Simulated scan of single mutants.
Amino acid sequence: MIQNVEFRFEGGRCGVLLIHGLTGTPTEMRLVGKGLNNAGFSVRGMQLAGHCGDARDLIATGWKDWYASVEAAAESFRHEVDHLFVAGLSMGGILALKLAAERPEWIAGVGVYGATFRYDGWAVPWYGRLSFLLPLLHRLGIGRHRMVHENEPYGLRDERLRKQVSGLMLGGDSAAAGLPGNPWPSLAEMYNMAAVVRRELPKVTAPCLIAHATEDDVASVENAYLVARSVSGPVDMLLLEDSYHMITIDRERRTLIHRSAEFFSKVAATRTPAARAVA
């Protein structure tokens, strides 16, 4: 059964919509949300369609459902604030970019955290690097009940936190720590979406803060450079050297929070009152 673990932190007239990753949970965005709220932002930590339940719940949805839930959350939130920013981790970063491409009039700026167009990090096993073939297998009806299991270091350089999160995940608490792996059909959907968004990146005109771990175990930093090369708006890069993939909760999360708050505040300060009313 799907549990609702979305969160809301009330603050000022600048809002940030936070999007978690594939098989993840809003909990992985909560510390960033709290930090941004402490900096004066209103924050919504949304929950993607089909998430925070079991694998069957997730498989029952596809990338268009995930994006529809993002767009619905943004549509609601944007009427409560003068400036709406969107930020996401991993696949959540891809969804944030799609929202900025599809709804440029809504979005003042984007936080792209650990963008994952391909699973090509140093800890991904050789067969995991072939997951780009999953859309073909999915179309052929192969592997519907198979899963690519998570493995050490679970996106976390902080060993204490890694032990805590892996215990929750492997213990079946998907609302707190996500699923212990990626179902093949869901990975296929993610790759299909990534291909669409990659073509749409030039439509992203909003300023982007692109944050990525230099030693990302799940998605290499080349994913970040792809975004930086392809979007049309201004780019600010933040490369983190003491974290793995889960940069929103790993060792340098405070740096990520500080730079995000600084970036969003700077962008908001450049927008005129007329543009603020549209946002």
Score class of each variant (00 low, 15 high):
48 L>C: 07
78 R>P: 05
100 A>P: 02
106 W>M: 12
92 G>E: 06
63 W>R: 04
48 L>T: 06
102 E>R: 15
58 L>I: 09
46 M>T: 13
81 V>N: 04
61 T>R: 05
37 N>A: 12
75 E>C: 09
64 K>N: 09
64 K>E: 12
103 R>M: 13
53 G>I: 14
114 G>A: 12
82 D>A: 11
109 G>Y: 08
40 G>D: 13
115 A>Q: 06
95 L>F: 11
111 G>F: 06
62 G>Q: 08
60 A>C: 03
95 L>H: 10
70 V>T: 05
73 A>F: 12
88 G>H: 10
61 T>Y: 01
104 P>Q: 08
107 I>T: 03
101 A>V: 08
49 A>E: 11
56 R>M: 05
107 I>S: 02
87 A>C: 03
77 F>S: 09
95 L>D: 04
95 L>P: 03
48 L>E: 07
56 R>G: 03
42 S>T: 15
91 M>Q: 09
77 F>G: 08
75 E>Q: 12
47 Q>H: 02
71 E>A: 15
60 A>K: 13
66 W>V: 08
64 K>Y: 02
40 G>K: 10
41 F>P: 01
100 A>Y: 11
48 L>A: 06
54 D>S: 04
37 N>K: 04
104 P>Y: 11
114 G>P: 04
37 N>Q: 10
76 S>A: 05
67 Y>L: 15
68 A>D: 02
102 E>D: 15
114 G>M: 07
107 I>M: 10
57 D>I: 02
106 W>N: 02
96 A>Y: 11
93 G>T: 05
96 A>H: 10
115 A>F: 00
75 E>A: 13
40 G>Y: 12
65 D>C: 04
41 F>V: 12
51 H>F: 13
113 Y>A: 00
67 Y>H: 14
83 H>V: 11
88 G>K: 07
86 V>T: 04
63 W>H: 15
58 L>K: 05
99 L>S: 03
99 L>Y: 13
62 G>K: 09
84 L>R: 12
114 G>Y: 12
51 H>Q: 08
44 R>N: 00
78 R>K: 14
93 G>A: 15
103 R>H: 13
91 M>T: 06
113 Y>D: 00
98 K>A: 11
43 V>C: 08
58 L>S: 02
42 S>W: 14
68 A>V: 01
57 D>C: 14
87 A>N: 00
46 M>H: 05
69 S>I: 08
109 G>S: 05
102 E>H: 15
77 F>N: 10
98 K>H: 12
86 V>N: 06
64 K>V: 00
95 L>A: 07
64 K>T: 10
69 S>F: 15
95 L>N: 08
37 N>Y: 10
41 F>L: 06
111 G>P: 01
71 E>I: 06
72 A>L: 14
53 G>H: 15
43 V>N: 07
87 A>H: 01
70 V>Y: 09
98 K>G: 09
40 G>R: 10
45 G>R: 11
45 G>P: 01
80 E>G: 07
100 A>G: 08
84 L>G: 04
63 W>K: 01
37 N>I: 05
82 D>Q: 14
60 A>D: 12
75 E>S: 11
108 A>E: 14
59 I>F: 10
37 N>S: 13
67 Y>P: 00
105 E>K: 15
48 L>P: 01
71 E>T: 01
99 L>R: 11
114 G>C: 08
59 I>N: 07
45 G>E: 01
66 W>P: 07
43 V>Q: 10
76 S>Q: 07
53 G>V: 14
87 A>V: 01
109 G>W: 11
45 G>A: 03
45 G>F: 03
